[in-house]
Amino acid sequence: MARRTVLYRLSPYLFLIVPLIIYCIWVVGPMLYTIYLSFTNWDGVSSPAVIGWRNYQKLFRDPVFYISLTNNLKWMLCFITIPVVGGLALALALNRNIPGAKFFKTSFYSPMVLSLVVCGLIWSWMYHPAKGLINESLRLIGLDALAKGWLSDRRLVMWAIIAVGVWRQVGYVMVLYLAGLQGVDPTLVDASRVDGCSNWQTIWHVILPLLSPVTVVVVVISIIDSLRAFDLVSVMTRGGPYYSSSVLANFMYIEAFNNYKMGYGAAISVILFILSAVFIFLYLWRVMQTEMEY
């Protein structure tokens, strides 16, 4: 191989320098700066003063924090079960060339191109207590008792919002599993058939284990998405009524930008970060494993 020139040895750094500086200024730096802000009483206007752990002490005594955290956990539980099972089932069903497969696929992933704001608005109208499609349908078939104020009932509101998220997420998971299924060696499936496996046994013992790398990605993405949840809540209820649909991101936004308690908001976001860090590392670890295969 030819002797490398100095320019050649320098070139990766020349390629990297501008993007990396931009990335550090807008992403890496701010991440660290948030940690600092969480120890201050910054109000967004005057310069921040360090107040130690006070924001965190206050946070751990704040009932809204626990409501929001619980709501994020509900969101997470729904996201790692319903769309994953639903998306997998759809992918398994649509991976075979059944009539109209393309139509079905398109229908399920079409919600993904809508912004969450649009989803939130369209569904808010579906949930409209008086004339929304859901309540009107229930009344039409005589189930008046089931017609609720979906977004005004404290016990229902969170689930009603999560349902919208699920509606949008199923298609995404389906796409990922469909891609994963492309990589499943058909001879293995045939072999299991020859060995007398039923459909279920083939799925459970052959296809699912082969799909497990996809499952890891899907679960991690779902968890991260559920921790990021903001848009739907912000558009549909702003966390109300009485914080019953508050999630951490929304709680943080309100504290920081409506109540000007930016230091406190920073503390909330640090908690959010710690929660996601576990899963980010899980994901990085998986990426690293595939790296080793190179």
Partner: peptide, 15 residues
Amino acid sequence: VGGTMLPFQVLMLPV
């Protein structure tokens, strides 16, 4: 890669 998974809220105030 780690940055892509970040909850954006962490960056909100400093940005």
